[in-house]
């Protein structure tokens, strides 16, 4: 087992040398600027919009904890509040570098904490146009990169690069990202499905600066070009570094719903 891990590590190292291109460097810099917040908490309102414009609303709280070192897990806890019939349902994720994430779902009706497979990456999240993959923590080394050039998007000069997921469970063959040159904020993403068709577009809107350090979008807008459906995720009450502990992301916390 140990030997196997060393082989994988060697492979990963050579992979990152091979992809040591400008696209990879931009992703690393964007990741560096995004990290270091320690922990965060935000309220999310998710609006599902169908072809005819009908809207459905979901609200949830998202807590995140950054792993301190490379071997520590990043952890996240999503608690649902609306619609009321799923209030109290919670999803706990521990990301494990280089391996499948560990995930548990809390079912409040029977007080059950159920381990679930994290390979459901391409599945729809809560009936929205986002998949679990879109909302999971993303490691720079989970992709291969290709730099495509620079382009202007809504008056901002952006780096444009392509990344291809290494994970076979991914729902995408590639993603094209627009990252602004001033602050390395992702502005737009085009998603390509397994037929290599551009099926979804994500737009990140209303970036605000928190703690003089962290840029976060106030809205994610995902359009599905195949179905005509859209999902808007609006973030509010962002809080960073409020001292959340590892124990706030334990399985036994799920039952308390706090």
């Amino acid at each position: 087992m140990k030997r196997w891990k060393i082989i994988v590590a060697t492979l990963a190292a050579s992979a990152s040398i091979a992809s040591a291109n400008q696209g990879y460097d931009i992703a690393v810099e964007a990741d560096r600027r995004h990290s270091g917040y320690g922990d965060s908490e935000a309220e999310v309102v998710m609006t599902l919009i169908n072809k005819t414009g009908d809207e459905d609303r979901r609200t949830l709280t998202v807590k995140e904890l950054e792993g301190g070192t490379a071997t520590d897990n990043d952890k996240s806890l999503m608690s649902f509040n609306h619609p009321r019939d799923i209030a109290g349902t919670a999803l706990l994720t521990w990301s494990v570098p280089g391996e499948d994430d560990l995930q548990w779902l809390y079912l409040p009706a029977i007080k059950r904490v159920k381990a679930i497979s994290s390979s459901n990456r391409s599945g729809a999240f809560m009936g929205s146009e986002f998949t679990f993959e879109d909302l999971s923590p993303q490691d720079v080394d989970d992709y291969e990169y290709e730099y495509l050039g620079e382009k202007e998007l809504n008056g901002e000069l952006c780096f444009v690069y392509e990344r291809r997921p290494k994970d076979r469970d991914s729902g995408y063959t590639k993603e094209v990202l627009w990252v602004d040159q001033s602050e390395y904020r992702t502005r737009q993403v085009h998603f390509y499905d397994h037929k290599n068709e551009h099926t979804k577009t994500l737009t990140l809107i209303g970036y605000e600066l928190y703690n003089d350090e962290f840029w976060r979008p106030s809205e994610l807008f995902m359009e599905n070009h195949e179905t005509g459906r859209k999902t808007r995720m609006a973030f509010s009450n962002y809080q960073f570094g409020q001292g959340l502990r590892d124990s706030d992301f334990n399985r036994s916390q799920l039952r308390y719903g706090r």
Partner: peptide, 12 residues
């Protein structure tokens, strides 16, 4: 055993 996005639908 999970089968996700059955035959390109949203059904799990």
């Amino acid at each position: 055993h999970g089968i996700y996005s059955l035959i390109d639908t949203r059904v799990d």
